[in-house]
Amino acid sequence: MGCSTSAAGLVVLLALAPGCAGGDEPPAQGTAELGTGEWQFEPLVDGQEVELAHGAQGGWHLWTSVRTLGLEPEGVQLEVTTTVLDDPASATTSRGRIELTELEDGRCELIGWPAVLREPACAIGRPLRIRAVVTDARGTVATGERRVRPRWDSDEACAEGP
């Protein structure tokens, strides 16, 4: 029984080992959990309503947080895209170089990234996809995605054309 466990462990190690072929190998994969929260990580579930926040420069955004496993915390590139599902032209992407905070259980997290919406009034109550791509300095990539429904207390009208 010990041999089969060791053999299985070796197979896992070989599968996770970096390749020697250069640029032909896909990047290593980590895991990411997408959440919300400005001050602490709050898990999201698909279909959940999420309150829009008014930004300091007049725009509207969703507070987005992410937890990762298998990524180094320094030199991380974060890319967050929001898209109203039935309107691909609504896609808005923000990017930045960040540093993740290490947690005691081996995961890392970033709390409070403002995921901007291009036309927030047009997204209210409609299914919105939030997708985060996190890439560390080694090239390890983790992605997380959730489908939520934005809500807000504003009388701003949707400027969407016919």
Rank of each mutant, 00 (worst) to 15 (best):
P18N: 11
L69R: 06
P73G: 05
G75F: 12
G35N: 01
E25P: 01
E51G: 00
E25T: 02
D86M: 11
I98Y: 12
V66F: 12
R107I: 06
G9K: 10
V116D: 00
E33A: 10
A123D: 00
D155Q: 13
R95W: 09
R107H: 10
D153C: 06
L52F: 05
G125Y: 14
G125W: 12
E156Y: 14
A32W: 09
P120M: 12
G22N: 09
C108F: 09
G2H: 15
G9W: 11
V76M: 12
V116M: 13
G47A: 03
P162G: 10
I98R: 04
L34C: 05
V80R: 02
C122K: 01
E42K: 03
G37E: 04
A157M: 09
C158V: 06
R147C: 11
Q48A: 03
G139R: 10
R97V: 05
T31R: 15
T5R: 14
E160I: 08
G47E: 06
C108M: 11
E25N: 09
T135R: 15
M1V: 11
V80Y: 07
G112F: 15
D136L: 06
C108A: 12
T82V: 10
M1W: 11
I111F: 14
S4W: 12
L71N: 00
E38Y: 10
V141N: 05
G139Y: 15
V50I: 13
V148D: 02
H61F: 05
E79Q: 09
A123I: 03
A32V: 08
G70W: 15
G161A: 15
T83P: 04
S154E: 09
T81N: 04
T68P: 04
T36K: 02
S65K: 01
L110Q: 03
Q29T: 01
G144T: 00
V12N: 10
C158R: 01
G125T: 01
A137Q: 10
R129I: 04
D24L: 12
D24V: 13
A121K: 08
P150S: 06
G144V: 02
G106F: 14
I130L: 15
D136N: 02
E25L: 13
Q29C: 11
E72N: 07
V12P: 01
L103C: 05
S4P: 03
G125P: 00
